[in-house]
Amino acid sequence: MDFLNALVALTNFVLVPGIAYGSQLALGALGVTLIYGILRFSNFAHGDTMAFGTMMTILFTWWFQSMGITAGPLPTALLALPFGIAVTMGLVVGTDRAVFRFYRQQKAKPVVFVMVSLGVMFIMNGLVRFIIGPGDQQFADGERFIVSARTFKSLTGLDEGLAIKTSQGITVVTAVIVVAALFWFLNKTRTGKSMRAYSDNEDLALLSGINPERVVTYTWLIVAALATIAGTLYGLDKSFKPFTYFQLLLPIFAAAIVGGLGNPLGAIAGGFVIAMSEVMVTYAWKKVAEYVLPDSLAPSGLVQLMSTDYKFAVSFAILIVVLLFKPTGIFKGKAV
C-alpha cells in the first residue's frame, strides 16, 4: 500500500507535470530545430513568436467568449487556436520577407542572422506588450480537471490523490497529434521531403530543382503553427505573461541542443529530458521517501535538491554538460 501511495505521489507531482511541460518544450524546440535545419541559425525570436501566437489566441478566445461561443468542457482557446495560428503565420512570413530574406540573398554569416533575430525579438516583444500589456493573463475555461484528487482518492481508497488537469491532458493529446502530423508531413509529402533534402544538403537540393524560397516559406508556416500551439498549451497550463515566454527561450534552446540541433526527433527527446530533470531536481522528495523508506530512515528535511527558483539552472547545467561532452547532441544534430 505504501509503495502504491509513493507511486501515486510520484505520478501526481513529477510524472504528470513533467510530461505536460515536456510536451510543451518539445513543440517549442521543434520550431527552433526546424529553423536551424533549414535556415541555419538559432532563432532568438522564437520565445516571442510563441508569445505573439498565444496573445492572438487569447484575443480570439475573449472574442468568442464575449459572443457566448465555448467548447463545452474543453477550453475555448482550442477553438481560437486556428485563428491565432493563421495570424502568426502571416506575421512570421511577413517578417521573413521584410527582414530575413535580404540576408539570405547576401549569404550573410549565421551570427548576423542571430543578431537580426534579436532585433525581430525586440519588435515582437514590444508589439505583444503594446497590445496586451506586460501582465498576467488567465484564459483557461471549461472543466478544470479530468481526474481530481478527491475522486481519485474515493475511487481507489489510497491516501494520496492523483489530479490530472484538463490542460495537461489536452497538452499531451495535442502534442502527439501535432508531432505525428509533422513527421507524416516531413516523411511522406513532396514538400516535406524537399525540406529534408534542403536541410541535408543545400547544394544538391538546389541542383535537383527544389525552390529554396518555397522551402523557407513552408518552414516558417510550420514554425508559426508549432510556436502558437506550444505557447497556447503552456499558457493554458500555467498562465500567459510575455516575459515568461522570453525566459522559455533557454530551456527550449537547451532541449534542441541536447537532442541535436536540426534533428526533429532529438528536439522531442530533448524537451522531455529537460522537463523531467527540471521537475525532478526541484521536487521535494520528502513525501515519496516517507512512503518508501522505513520510519527510522525517514528524512527530516524536504529532500529537495534545488529550490524551484533555480529551474533555469537545471536546463543550463544540462546544456553545459552536453556542450562539454557531446556538442552534437544525443541524436547527432548537424552543428558542431
Binding site: F41, S42, F44, K109, P110, V111, V114, Q247, L249, L250, F253, A254, I257, L261, D309, Y310, F312, A313, S315, F316, L319, I320, L323, L324, P327, A335, V336
Partner: peptide, 26 residues
C-alpha cells in the same frame, strides 16, 4: 565550455549564465 564550438552556442550559453547569475542574486 562554449568557445571553439559554433558561434550560436556561445550566444545560448551566455544567455543561460546571465539568467543563472541573476537567479543566484535574487
Amino acid at each position: 565550455t562554449a568557445l571553439g564550438l559554433r558561434s550560436d552556442y556561445l550566444a545560448i550559453a551566455t544567455l543561460g549564465i546571465a539568467e543563472i547569475i541573476l537567479s543566484v542574486l535574487k
